[in-house]
Design a protein around this nucleic acid. Structure first.
Lengths: 141, 141
DNA sequence: TTAAAAATTGTAATCATTACAAAAATATAT
DNA sequence: ATATATTTTTGTAATGATTACAATTTTTAA
């Protein structure tokens, strides 16, 4: 809770009960949750919480670069409190999103320092993989 | 038209007037159009065409790896007849999607040959950039 | 030529997200 | 401290892309 508050502070985001709870949830659940997962998880302890607030808050966080919005799953936006450069793998079978470190010598700067982009202003870079994860691969057989 | 038909053939997709027209449109308009753009463009010459057919057909093409579905724009899915490896840049101002060649020494195999993915079955890899394109940058000033 | 299979169509449903305006909470100035 | 302005939250209603579905049409194969 304290960490979430400090983090919001560092990103110059005014805090509130709701904002702290949402950031705290994201920091403690590295599962790339959907809006609804966050809303349903927090509702019990915060019965007045509104879905709209979750939407608004996540949008605010993303605009302030405090979180990442992941659009790898066509059904729902997913959210990640870890903003340091890494790729994402989406298992089309179970829906899990895995964090994937970038390969050696391919940190995000090498991805966005693409000379083809010299006249573009790049604000974000996303590397997405889709397929079957190890768990589904073996259980499927 | 002939090319579109041959291409569908090579991907083992039964063709029909509608399928050829849709593939032909995609091959001739490298603008990464939305479902609606395709539907509205083809409607005049093909008045019985249904939006549902455009949806179904594009889904079929994507499943057969004949086209790419691009989810870089949260509002709409966008489609690309060019399936060879390249990145996409989405201008958040004008909505244009640019094809961006991958940087030297970073072809798609180097992206998906990430050792972190050795236990995953990778079916697709997408590299997305977002920001402001050169045109919007200068006109904005 | 006729029956079976595949493709297309239009409408209705779904569902994530956004718009909006009222209510509540918080910050500011007197 | 108190009234006022600003920000945040809330709930409902609207939007809009996509999908479900069942009927119709077209194509294929016997």
């Amino acid at each position: 809770m304290k960490q979430a508050q400090d983090y919001l502070n560092s990103k110059e985001i005014h805090f509130s009960q709701q904002r702290i709870a949402i950031m705290d949830y994201l920091m403690k659940h590295r599962t790339h949750p959907t809006v609804d997962e966050i809303y349903l998880a927090l509702s019990p302890q915060m019965p007045t919480l509104s879905r709209t607030t979750v939407y608004n808050t996540l949008k605010l966080f993303a605009e302030q670069d405090a979180i990442l919005t992941i659009n790898i799953d066509e059904k729902n936006a997913r959210f990640d409190a870890c903003t340091s450069p890494h790729a994402h793998f989406f298992c089309t079978q179970c829906g899990t999103i895995y964090d994937i470190p970038l390969p050696e010598g391919q940190d995000s700067s090498s991805l966005s320092n693409n000379p083809e982009l010299k006249d573009f202003i790049v604000k974000s870079t996303q590397l997405y993989y889709k397929g079957i994860c190890p768990l589904c691969k073996t259980s499927e057989k």
